[in-house]
Design a protein around this nucleic acid. Structure first.
Lengths: 128, 128
DNA sequence: CATAAAAATGATAATGATTATTAGTTCTAA
DNA sequence: TTAGAACTAATAATCATTATCATTTTTATG
């Protein structure tokens, strides 16, 4: 996979901003470095990077796609107040995957977990 | 909460079709019973029923909202081929919720798990 | 080099899901 | 019975995403 200037910047921005940004957010960030970039280029490259397994597209957070420059397997925690997304690195449920569901004839290939609740900042401010 | 003819039919259709339909799918089903109903009425009532806790809006399946007439807590399995959604009734992870995440200062209010893989039908046909 | 084919880009139109608006209709309570 | 509230159908508006297309950049090859 070849890297154009645009694609490189998009990937770089994802690496430097591990906040699981949406396409629009990536657009805003890359625009600071390359003001003439088009939103279509953002979407096109995010999809290509996803297809090549370089980044991951998260479709289970809300109804907007978020993008993640991921290396290791992890889960996500979404703050129910500010919607910030936190990485959860934990060895959850390696065995649940196969055992529980076989009984229903379903073959589990993947499992996504999203936690929600209050993040530390919002917990602090929730007493106002 | 009062039930208009439209709202009653929407809820009834959800009860009789536990396939986690989208708003458009609910629209199509209700239209058979009440051809003049408007799509806006579907959305309005689905949102109101959700706000009143009568039904549940699933935003973590894909990037379209699905609606569920739910009683007990359950998880979902999404077939990676046909995208059909299956209910997973299992006593998973009551303790993971609080234990694992406290260390990171996150207060878990809810947790959603979506499994994906092949459903029995698609597994059967995957050898073609 | 020269240059033709392939790939990528920017601009923008088109689409699909959802929300907002609005004028008219139905329900409800005094 | 009737004014006000709630609800509706139709449709415009919005937001996220994809498709299109003319132009530019890159790449491979003679």
């Amino acid at each position: 996979m070849k890297y154009s200037k645009q694609r490189s910047l998009i990937l770089e921005v994802l690496q430097n901003n591990p906040c699981h940004p949406t396409a629009e957010q990536v657009f805003a960030l890359v625009k600071e470095l390359l003001p003439d970039i088009s939103l279509a280029t953002i979407y096109r490259n995010l999809n290509q990077l996803t297809e090549n397994g370089i980044i991951k597209k998260l479709d289970y957070i809300d109804n907007v796609s978020h993008f993640d420059y991921c290396t290791e397997k992890h889960y996500h925690f979404v703050c129910s107040k500010c919607s910030k997304i936190f990485d959860i690195k934990a060895n959850i449920i390696p065995e649940i995957k196969q055992s529980i569901l076989k009984q229903q004839g379903l073959t589990v290939e993947d499992m996504e977990i999203s936690f929600s609740g209050l993040c530390p900042d919002c917990l602090k401010n929730s007493n106002n």
